[in-house]
Amino acid sequence: MPSMPSDSAGPQGLRRRDLLLGTLAAGFAAAVRPIAASTITTAAEGLTAGFVSIPVQGRSIPAYRARPAAGTNLPVVLVVQEIFGVHAYLQDVCRRLARLGYLAIAPSLFERQGDVTKLPDIAAILPVVATVPDAQVMADLDASVAWAASSGGGNISKLGITGFCWGGRITWLYAAHNPKLAAGVAWYGRLEGTRTPEQPFYPLDVAAKLKAPVLGLYGGKDDGIPLESVERMQAALKAAGSRSEIIVFPDAPHGFHADFRPTYRAADAADGWKRLLSWFKANGVA
């Protein structure tokens, strides 16, 4: 590859780091290896799929997007990463949605803080994640929506969001942030925790401020999200008169949709996916 300056292409072009991320993140994050035999791989035939550059605040961030090769006015789904970055699993989720007619976009939301896909374990990743401001994440997601409307062939009047683990928390927060969002689906995102200047709110804090209905999908045997926390969120949603709801899969652990990890539970993952599609359809993301 010819050498190029680190920001040679400007906000509309692909910087050298964007190109590198598109290559390196094609596999799985180092922290999640070895990969389970249950891993699902969705073919890209008939799709337009790969990394694009999203202009945001005078620079650009890479994002993986997948969409049908033909068609316009596509419903848009933001796909929000786990702490492991935009690696092969997130990319596959985008392709699964694209095969159903969606324009799915997974922006690299830790781009400014570092490429976590190469870090060896969770202990190395968490200090990076702790420095990612929620305000930055909201802005990057907004920029991804703008890109979908201007360059991706998307119809942002049919806008949804789904996220996993770290991205599950972000899904709830984005539903309180963007009044144009139609619906969200949060997979086992933490509902309460220690507030910091970078991350000042949790879903429980914004339960009464949701601008779009969110479906929460949680595991009854999640070691990191106790059922008491889920119950507090359910009570807060009910008190707010929210259309959001939470489904608990009694025997599922944290990460039950992550088919590349030992936590994967095929039946619960399939049930959750069906619920996601029904939720989106019922709330105008189709």
Rank of each mutant, 00 (worst) to 15 (best):
R96C: 07
A98P: 08
R99C: 03
G101M: 09
Y102D: 08
Y102V: 06
L103T: 08
L103H: 08
A104Q: 08
A104N: 12
A104E: 11
I105K: 11
A106E: 00
A106T: 02
A106H: 03
P107K: 00
S108V: 12
S108M: 06
S108Q: 14
L109I: 11
E111D: 15
E111Q: 13
Q113M: 10
G114V: 04
G114F: 01
D115R: 10
D115I: 09
T117C: 01
K118M: 07
K118S: 01
L119M: 06
P120T: 02
D121W: 04
I122E: 02
A124E: 02
L126S: 12
P127W: 12
V128M: 06
V129Q: 14
V129T: 11
T131S: 15
V132L: 10
P133R: 13
D134H: 10
Q136H: 09
Q136P: 07
Q136A: 15
M138Q: 13
A139T: 02
A139E: 13
L141I: 14
L141C: 14
L141G: 09
A143L: 10
A146E: 14
W147E: 06
A148F: 03
A148D: 03
S150Y: 01
G154E: 12
N155T: 04
N155V: 04
N155S: 05
N155P: 08
K158C: 05
L159C: 09
L159E: 12
L159Y: 04
G160A: 03
I161Y: 06
I161G: 00
T162C: 11
T162N: 07
T162E: 05
G163Y: 01
G163R: 07
F164H: 09
F164V: 02
C165L: 07
C165F: 03
W166Y: 14
G167P: 05
G167M: 02
G168P: 00
R169F: 02
I170P: 00
T171R: 03
W172H: 09
Y174N: 13
Y174M: 12
A175I: 05
A175E: 14
A175N: 10
A176K: 10
A176D: 12
H177Q: 13
H177E: 15
N178E: 12
P179N: 07
P179Q: 10
K180G: 15
K180C: 14
L181S: 00
L181A: 13
A182K: 14
A182H: 07
A182L: 07
A182S: 12
A183Y: 08
A183F: 02
A183V: 01
G184A: 04
A186E: 02
W187L: 15
W187E: 07
W187G: 09
R190E: 03
R190A: 04
L191V: 15
E192L: 01
E192K: 14
E192V: 01
T194L: 14
T194W: 14
P197E: 15
P197M: 10
E198F: 13
E198Q: 12
Q199I: 04
Q199C: 05
P200C: 04
P200S: 03
F201H: 12
F201K: 13
F201R: 15
F201T: 02
